[in-house]
Design a protein around this nucleic acid. Sequence first.
DNA 1: TTTCTAAACGAACACTGTTCGGTTATGCAA
DNA 2: TTGCATAACCGAACAGTGTTCGTTTAGAAA
Lengths: 215, 215
Amino acid sequence: MDKTKKKRARSEEAKEKQFKRIVDAGRELFLEYGPEGVSMRSLAKKLNMGQASLYTYIPSKRELWFAIMRNDFSIFENGMGEIMQSHRGNNIELLEKIAKYYLKFAQEDERRYRMMFQTPAPSSKNTGPFELQYDSHSIYYLKEIVQKAVEAGEIKEKDVGKLSFFIWGIVHGTVSVIHTEFFGERAKIPDVGSIEEYHSFILKYIKKILNDLLS
Amino acid sequence: MDKTKKKRARSEEAKEKQFKRIVDAGRELFLEYGPEGVSMRSLAKKLNMGQASLYTYIPSKRELWFAIMRNDFSIFENGMGEIMQSHRGNNIELLEKIAKYYLKFAQEDERRYRMMFQTPAPSSKNTGPFELQYDSHSIYYLKEIVQKAVEAGEIKEKDVGKLSFFIWGIVHGTVSVIHTEFFGERAKIPDVGSIEEYHSFILKYIKKILNDLLS
DNA sequence: TTTCTAAACGAACACTGTTCGGTTATGCAA
DNA sequence: TTGCATAACCGAACAGTGTTCGTTTAGAAA
């Protein structure tokens, strides 16, 4: 146990460090127990600080959720951006890569995936910068690719907006379906096999859709 | 205000009536404010009864949610069953009808749709019969149709289980995507147009997938 | 060294879902 | 018709929550 007297974070640097400490510990707890399973008291305890002190750094549990998720979404979106930058040539192939990336991301860390794409933010009347600036870059990236594919004549459909949402819906929907509790395990386990098997199944068909259906 | 003295529901019939009153009022409030926005106290108040009295009829808010949703899922599943029974011939056409039915269902009452397919059940340690018996019949129906289509040679793919989840994922995913708050309105509104427009867009492509891709 | 801002925090507030204990209406047996 | 056991009913209490208040005081700036 650290019995040294508590310091106060007054410099900009120290304050950012404290903020990061809160977000990191919050993320760990949120992933382990879900936002509902974590109280601000328990978070404060883990950080060895008073409950009220948390509120010098974040205005609400909701805003903490957005702050935590900002990092993970940045990781996801940066990965997407890198794929786009390093890719050369055919845009349909790029879309395949993005789909594959999404599947890999879901498989890599299921708890993270569910937190990002399925768990709703806790509610609160207090907003903050992270919620206000919250916006999904992924859909803009996707639109960008679809736009190029249309211009290159690789996709016949001209409605880039609708088609982008449609593609997102397919990839996200087909993956999500086995990560939800919506269908009990009763139905899922005998039907879809392991996640790996199911993922390679849907990847096959997503490729088909991208190649055969849209060209 | 009803100032007549309170009666007690002791007959099986009267108890069922009370239960139904609770479920109906609960449904109204849940749809209007969401499960989180409704307290058991406010529900009791609306029903002109004590808070504790609710618990002679349901063991938890969570179980109330399952009781409420049971009705709506029955409506959805019965509608699906009727379509299946009245349909003759080609199973791909039947799948198209089911997809169309899902879209119509979502369009008909968005609040209901979101409650059923997007809102997670409130959590509680107390379970009850409605939660325990909760199971999604839709996926079994869907599997049934896919099975027949495979047997009739209308679908080449042999893995009925995976394919059924895949199809569900496509329909649910592409519809859900415009009913979530995941993408801010910023991105959605200029891109997908009205719900009607978007729905007819995705229906066109779902038909294509069913006809061109799987046969 | 003094001043003064704001980080830190225990206590309190207003809420929540749920349980407890007592009251008493009510269906049923005598 | 009467007496009785049962369980519907309910106000109060309990254990929790997110958040705010008021106070203390560390520590950067003067």
